[in-house]
Simulated scan of single mutants.
Amino acid sequence: MSRALFTEHELAALRLLAQGRTQVEIARALRIRPETVGRLLNRARILLRARTLPHAVARGYETCLLGPPPHDHEIEQEEHRPSGPDGPNRGQEPTD
């Protein structure tokens, strides 16, 4: 997928959507109307040949338009960090 097909506003809106922002939040961040955000995201969805906006985000990652998708093992490592006596602060005095 060529970045040249997308405007900077379309890419910015898609990135913010990928972060979980709502249309209203995206509009505030880009200083545009929510209706305009809807048009930007719809055009991006069509260009990505996606059925829905969540599918557009997935296609954006698949095509590296939004950067590489996170790897499953990286997500698992972040979720399962040890935090007990064998955790990262092992051997240090507890602080209050």
Rank of each mutant, 00 (worst) to 15 (best):
R43T: 07
L66T: 08
P94Y: 00
H9G: 01
S83D: 09
E74M: 13
E79V: 15
Q19R: 11
L30H: 09
R28C: 00
T7F: 09
R43C: 03
L53T: 02
P82W: 10
A4W: 04
A56P: 04
P82D: 10
L47E: 07
H73C: 02
R15G: 00
E10Y: 08
Y61K: 07
F6D: 00
E25Q: 06
R28L: 04
A18K: 01
E74F: 14
P68E: 15
C64P: 09
L47H: 08
A50F: 00
Q23L: 10
G20V: 01
L11T: 10
R31W: 12
A4R: 09
T63N: 13
R59E: 08
A18Q: 06
S83Q: 11
E76Y: 13
E79S: 08
A58W: 06
E79F: 12
R45E: 05
R39S: 09
L40P: 07
L14I: 00
E79L: 15
R43I: 01
H55Y: 02
L47W: 02
A18P: 01
L41T: 01
E62T: 11
T7M: 05
Q23C: 00
Y61E: 03
P85M: 06
R43S: 03
E8S: 14
Q77V: 13
D72A: 10
E62I: 08
L66D: 03
T52G: 04
E76T: 14
L30V: 00
F6A: 03
T36D: 11
L41E: 02
D72G: 13
G38D: 12
P85E: 12
E25F: 00
P54K: 06
P69W: 11
P70Q: 05
Q92C: 00
S83V: 14
P34S: 03
Y61F: 12
N89P: 02
A56D: 06
P85R: 13
R45A: 03
E78F: 14
L14S: 04
Q19Y: 02
Y61R: 03
L66N: 12
A58Y: 01
T63D: 13
G84M: 07
G67R: 13
E35P: 06
D72W: 07
E10G: 09
G87H: 04
H80P: 06
